[in-house]
């Protein structure tokens, strides 16, 4: 890790330095650019070259020569190109050297002091995260176990509830059947008892009626007999009849 870091830092510094060297070799400063443009200036229809051509173009322009104004504008554009900003990416070589050295020093300091602390913090953070993950896994496992237990208990409770409902239904059916049987038996018994009572009442009424009739008949007979028996002749006749029946061998 450390070796790869140092190698990467060295490659970055070298690449920046090489590109900065190439840019410096091209001599691209604003003054040199303008100087080169002036020294190499040539215009169509204008005599001379370099600074002379520029001086003659100026004269022609002032003289309002045809086409001088266009040439002047083109040359001004060329010069304005020299005024463009330096490369924003590629710095100066010295800056790169000092920056690279400072970067290396800073990197060394960071490697020496900061990285262990950051590494330690990262490891602690990693450990905390791992612990949290482990804890979460454990809690998830526990939750899964609790859920499984709950689902099992729920299933057992549902089965128990179903069994209780079935038993209650069976018991209710048995009780209903028993009550129905008892009610039917009671009704049959009540009917038999009522029929027996009716029959007994009928027999009793007939017996009472017969007794009443016999009492009336006997009462009437006794009344008639009572009046007849008051007659001494009747009593004598009864005794004589008895004697006659005994004498004849009859009762």
């Amino acid at each position: 890790m450390s070796k790869r870091l140092w190698a990467a830092a060295a490659v970055v510094v070298a690449a920046v330095a090489l590109s900065a060297s190439a840019a410096s070799a091209a001599g691209e400063t604003v003054g040199s650019c303008i100087f080169d443009e002036l020294g190499e200036a040539q215009f169509e229809g204008i005599e001379g070259d370099g600074f002379t051509a520029v001086k003659n173009l100026k004269t022609a322009y002032k003289a309002d020569v045809e086409g001088a104004e266009d040439l002047k504008k083109d040359f001004e554009k060329d010069l304005e190109g020299c005024l463009e900003a330096p490369n924003p990416i590629i710095p100066e070589v010295t800056e790169i050297i000092w920056g690279g050295a400072a970067f290396i020093v800073l990197l060394a300091l960071m490697k020496w002091k900061l990285f262990p602390v950051v590494k330690n913090l990262m490891e602690q953070r990693t450990q905390r995260i791992q612990d949290a993950i482990d804890d979460a896994d454990r809690q998830r496992a526990e939750a899964a176990e609790v859920k499984a237990n709950y689902e099992a208990e729920l299933a057992d409770a549902k089965a128990e509830a179903a069994r209780i409902v079935d038993e209650a239904r069976e018991q209710a059916g048995a009780v209903r059947a028993d009550l129905q049987a008892r009610a039917e038996a009671d009704i049959a018994e009540m009917r038999e008892r009522a029929a027996a009572d009716v029959e007994a009442s009928k027999r009793q009424a007939i017996a009472d009626l017969q007794s009443e009739v016999s009492d009336i008949a006997l009462g009437a007979a006794e009344a008639v007999l009572g009046r007849s028996l008051e007659d001494p002749e009747m009593q004598r006749q009864l005794v004589d009849d008895y004697i006659a029946s005994v004498g004849a061998g009859q009762d």
């Binding site: 007999l225 009864l238 005794v239 009849d241 009762d251």
Partner: peptide
């Protein structure tokens, strides 16, 4: 009431009303 009841030993001849 009337008639006669004769008892001779264990024998009873009842001709009573």
């Amino acid at each position: 009431m009337g008639g006669v009841v004769a008892t001779i030993g264990d024998e009873v001849i009842d001709g009573s009303v």
